[in-house]
Design a protein around this nucleic acid. Structure first.
Length: 565
RNA sequence: GCGCCUAUAGCUCAAUUGGAUAGAGCAUCUGACUUCGGAUCAGAGGGUUGGGGGUUCGAGUCCCUCUAGGCGCACCA
């Protein structure tokens, strides 16, 4: 963990006969700083020593002698509490951040192992809705987090560009489509056709059958179907790329479902060859009954393949191509069963790496308590949300900082940051009820708050006018607020790992808010630039560390950190 | 019907994976140094952690049960 905890572990293990790792796991940070900097709960010892935890804590406390790093040891109830040398704490943390700069928190745990992240993956011919925001920003943040930890990270956009739905779109276009309209506003046109098709379909069930036929044609390489499909696909990609550019997101591989079309047959043959496939109700399936799951459909009765088939082929292709350490699927929780089936089939096929596939699931974005559905046609466009946020950001800049030089750029960074942060700050597994006021919140726990704090720190550094140097007298760092900040900074590398282990970018959000809140409190209560040169130098050293850590943390979320706003 | 997820302050969410007195933001009200950025900060009110049982030194967190909501469960993705 750090040198202080190492020291504490050494002290305890010298007195009590339990494994060091067990001590390490138990050492914690007390909820209130007044209690101490670190604590060791003695409950675990009470069985071994057959004494009350309170008694053990008292006994141990009286036998410890302070060291250079650990200055006070005392007991409070069943807890053994430690206070560390503030000077040494400040020195170890701040000098490390000074050395590493924005690499602080980097790590080689990844050791060049490859992690695949399948995220965003929108369906072509459909608008990029707010519902796609979560997978997009979570996936992108995980990319930054794992890259920071030394993994080779591959961003895959698994476009939904194949399947029966395109039979529907092709058919709808042939029945009601208009070339001019399509050219003018491709996605909206295709989307209208799609929605209309679903309406008509309810009245006339024959349409569904016909649409299925069109997809079958597409899969078999029919020229008319293929030409239309290609047109729809390229128009859609253009629109998606516009959104990705706004968000500052890139991919290493854009391989949609269609990419695996020629691997369907070999994949199915392989599954058959391993004796896993069977015919059931005219469809080709892998029976998963003994695992308590419904069968995994490989081929429909009309012989067309399904989502699952393509995902199996894709997983195998990915393993053969990348030999991944882990393969993540950032996809909504509604598809949980699908991924359980997928991973189970891969496992049954004898692939050990099936255990390295992870469904990183997340809750819905609802609107006014209702599910947003592309089929029903109630959808909020992501681009609209981003534009509205940028516009709001522009207005606020005009009001508060009209002299700002690169207004447009900053308005974008702040507006987009707000939307990304609003989404990432909630734990993955919760549903989000989309609310304009909340998505566009610029104060409180928000990206603009973090960015504002960052800009404020930059402003201090400009005002200081001197390079921030390493010759600092750490002894002058003494206020509670400063110590709190330093401890927070110290925890940052652990937070990154914690976020990675749990695939949970929200932990980074919480950390940043916490750091900002504590800095702003400090800033309010203490002057930083004063007549006392030694104190000023030391505080500016802290300021620099906080500034670079904020920028560092924001970058893990895919958010910019402007120096002025 | 079966399976999975969710329920914490008026609203939106935290709580370092079982630890010390459950914390923030928003909203409401009251305030803030005639020098560092007020997109900030301080204070106030606001809780039977959905109900009930259990496990243990200790439960918002684990188990059981009930309630409410959501998602999924064969040819959509």
């Amino acid at each position: 963990m750090n040198i202080f905890v190492d020291d504490i572990i050494k002290m305890i293990s010298a007195m009590v006969d339990i494994p060091e790792q067990e001590i390490r796991d138990s050492v914690e940070v007390p909820p209130d700083e007044k209690l101490g900097d670190y604590a060791f709960p003695c409950f675990v010892l009470s069985k071994k020593l057959k004494k009350a935890p309170n008694q053990i804590a008292t006994d141990l406390a009286s036998r410890f002698k302070p060291t250079e790093l650990i200055q006070e040891i005392y007991s409070i109830g069943p807890y053994l509490n430690f206070k560390v040398s503030k000077t040494r704490l400040a020195e170890s943390v701040l000098s490390l951040i000074f050395e590493q700069g924005e690499n602080y928190g980097s790590d080689n745990t990844g050791n060049d192992k490859t992690i695949l992240i399948d995220f965003s993956s929108p369906n072509i011919a459909k608008p990029f809705g707010i519902g796609h925001l979560r997978t997009t920003v979570i996936g992108n943040s995980l990319y930054h987090i794992f890259t920071k930890l030394g993994f080779k990270t591959v961003r895959i956009n698994h476009l939904g560009d194949w399947g029966t739905q395109f039979g529907k779109v092709i058919l709808a276009y042939k029945m009601w489509g208009d070339e001019n309209e399509l050219i003018k506003d491709p996605i909206a046109t295709l989307y209208d056709l799609y929605v209309r098709f679903h309406r008509e379909e309810e009245k006339d069930p024959k349409l569904e059958e016909e649409a299925r036929l069109w997809f079958k044609k597409l899969e078999d390489g029919d020229r008319e179907a293929k030409a239309l499909w290609e047109k729809f696909r390229s128009y859609s990609l253009e629109e998606f790329n516009r959104v990705y550019r706004i968000l500052g997101i890139e991919f290493d591989a854009i391989a949609g479902e269609s990419f695996y079309n020629d691997q369907m047959e070999p994949t199915i043959q392989e599954i058959k060859g391993k004796g896993l496939a069977e015919i059931s109700q005219d469809a080709l399936v892998v029976n998963l009954e003994r695992f308590g799951m419904p069968p995994c459909l490989l081929r429909k009765k009309d012989e067309a393949t399904l989502y699952a088939t393509r995902d199996i082929a894709a997983a195998i292709y990915r393993y053969n191509t990348y030999h991944f350490y882990k393969s993540l699927y950032v996809v909504g929780t509604a598809q949980k069963l699908h991924f359980q089936q997928l991973f189970k089939v891969l496992e049954l096929m004898g692939y050990q790496w099936a255990y390295d596939c992870v469904h990183v699931d997340f809750g819905w974005i609802k609107f006014k308590q209702e599910m947003m559905s592309t089929r029903k046609g109630n959808i909020i466009l992501l681009e609209d949300v981003l534009n509205k946020s940028i516009e709001l950001s522009r207005r606020i800049i005009e009001e508060k900082n009209p002299e700002l030089e690169n207004k447009e750029e900053v308005a974008k960074e702040v507006g987009i940051g707000a939307v990304i942060f609003a989404d990432l700050s909630t734990r993955r597994n919760k549903d989000i009820d989309f609310d304009w006021d909340q998505a566009l919140s610029f104060d409180g726990e928000s990206a603009p708050y973090v960015q504002y704090t960052h800009a404020r720190l930059c402003s201090l550094m400009r005002k200081y006018e001197k390079p921030i140097g390493k010759e600092v007298d750490y002894r002058v760092i003494s206020t509670d607020e400063e110590i709190t900040l330093i401890k927070l900074l110290e925890s940052f590398p652990r937070m990154i790992k914690f976020a990675a282990e749990n695939y949970e970018p929200s932990y980074i959000c919480t950390f940043l808010i916490d750091l900002c809140a504590n800095f702003n409190r400090f800033y309010q209560q203490h002057r930083i630039i004063t007549e006392e040169a030694g104190l000023t130098d030391a505080r500016m050293f802290l300021v620099k560390a906080i500034q670079s850590t904020l920028k560092n943390g924001l970058s893990l979320l895919g958010i910019e950190a402007p120096e002025r706003m």
